[in-house]
Amino acid sequence: MELTGDKAKAWLLNFEAKIQEHKAYLSDLDQAIGDGDHGSNMARGTEAVKVNLEKIAEPETAEVLKQAAMALISKVGGASGPLYGSAFMQMAKTAKETTDIHELIEAGLEGIKHRGKADVGDKTMVDTWAPVVEALAKDALTNEAITQAVDATKPLKAKKGRASYVGERSIGALDPGAVSSGYLFTALVEEVLQ
């Protein structure tokens, strides 16, 4: 499946709406094992994405992804800024070669791993992105698959990010970045895959 410029824009605007809607919930999740700012960080970042995207009259995939990356890098203010920012920057680079959704999201995952050095099982957003990439490879990304990936962060002990400092106490809590990434991919299903 191809990610056209129009679809990319619709996808990210939908993501922004979901983040605003769940802003308080994301911050509550972060308060439990971090510093309680993930909702407001992402709300500020995606708001800036929206402002950038609304300026683009004729969306082109690489440009949409690049504008999103720049907004997130400069406005989020927490770890999720450089992480989502690197993901979208890698996607924008890849979009110059291909607009295949699986390849784009896979490039995004590589961007996150390069920046944060986290792996699957470290209880981070990588634990949402990695299974999503696998599902996309089989053309089988569904909301159920996303929820399953997000929920699977609960029993994990955090090994990266702020939550790694609370040790055992992170067990039993959802990872906020995995949850916000879940919204990103639910928005993808709604706007692009369905």
């Binding site: 927490g78 770890a79 920012g85 690197s86 920046r115 944060g116």
Partner: peptide, 8 residues
């Protein structure tokens, strides 16, 4: 994030 931003 201070490290990741320095990195970028």
């Amino acid at each position: 994030s201070a490290k990741m931003t320095l990195d970028m």
